[in-house]
């Protein structure tokens, strides 16, 4: 019994220690964000990496999400004679839930994993030590620009995801299933409120910070060798994805 208690206790302490370490990492990186010199060129490069390079996959995912929503929604709504509500049936879940969550999961897979691997390789090849040895703060050079790039890129990519999704739904609902274009958009306008869009933005901002926090942390404190980097990358993607869904639920209860 004492052995079991000791095991549970030490496990809990280890989790708490890790959480504290992660929290210090986040606070440190955010605090460096407000101390000059600011690295605008690196920030632009990171926005390009996280944002621009994720566009193709975001457009693809967004359009098919909207198409699936329209296809399923149309048949369901027809059963209750409410096909006219297809516009809001596509737009509302997309803007409030699916857009922020699925785009965050997509960016985690595409950019988050790459960032963990990049920072991890910099760690094991002593590039981070080289920065420290040059009296240059690696947090400022590596982490802060990535965090800010995520804060800028995540909401923008989510907005693109939403818009493309709505047009994907339009294509299926209007062009393939014969709903009128006016009905699709006018009903959407009627049901959709600014609050819904705001919720989507808040969520994507939260997910952006969460994903970059986890991915940068895992890369920064990666284990030894190729195996360490591979493990850190896997952990970063899994942990980010789980945290996105947990945060989505709690944000959902907050905004419902």
């Amino acid at each position: 019994m004492t052995g079991l208690l000791r095991m549970v206790g030490s496990g809990a302490l280890s989790v708490l220690r890790k959480m504290g370490h992660m929290l210090i990492f986040l606070v440190q990186s955010l605090s460096y964000a407000f101390i000059p010199p600011f690295k605008f060129r690196i920030l632009l490069r990171e926005i390009q990496f996280i944002g621009t390079k994720s566009m193709t996959v975001i457009v693809l995912m967004g359009s098919f999400t909207g198409m699936v929503l329209a296809l399923q929604g149309f048949h369901l709504l027809r059963k209750v004679g409410s096909e006219a509500l297809l516009g809001p049936a596509v737009a509302l879940p997309l803007i409030r839930e699916l857009g922020p969550v699925l785009s965050a999961l997509t960016i985690t897979g595409r950019a988050g994993s790459a960032l963990t691997a990049e920072i991890g390789i910099m760690r094991i090849s002593e590039q981070i030590d080289a920065l420290t040895a040059m009296a240059l703060n690696p947090m400022r050079y590596l982490i802060v620009p990535k965090m800010f790039a995520a804060i800028i890129a995540f909401p923008l990519l989510t907005a693109i995801y939403d818009v493309v999704g709505i047009y994907g739904g339009y294509f299926v609902g209007v062009k393939l299933l014969g709903l009128s274009s006016g009905t699709y958009f006018s009903q959407m306008e009627h049901f959709l409120e600014m609050e819904d869009i705001r919720i989507g933005i808040y969520k994507s901002l939260t997910f952006g910070i969460l994903v970059l926090w986890v991915c940068c942390y895992k890369g920064f404190y990666t284990g030894y060798g190729a195996e360490g980097v591979s493990k850190a990358t896997t952990e970063a993607v899994v942990m980010s994805s789980v945290l996105i869904l947990i945060a989505d639920y709690f944000l959902g209860t907050l905004f419902i």
Partner: peptide, 14 residues
């Protein structure tokens, strides 16, 4: 650290 220069084992080039 401003007084130091370091040549790391693998070079540690960016």
């Amino acid at each position: 650290r401003q007084k130091f220069g370091v040549v790391f084992q693998g070079g540690a080039l960016f």
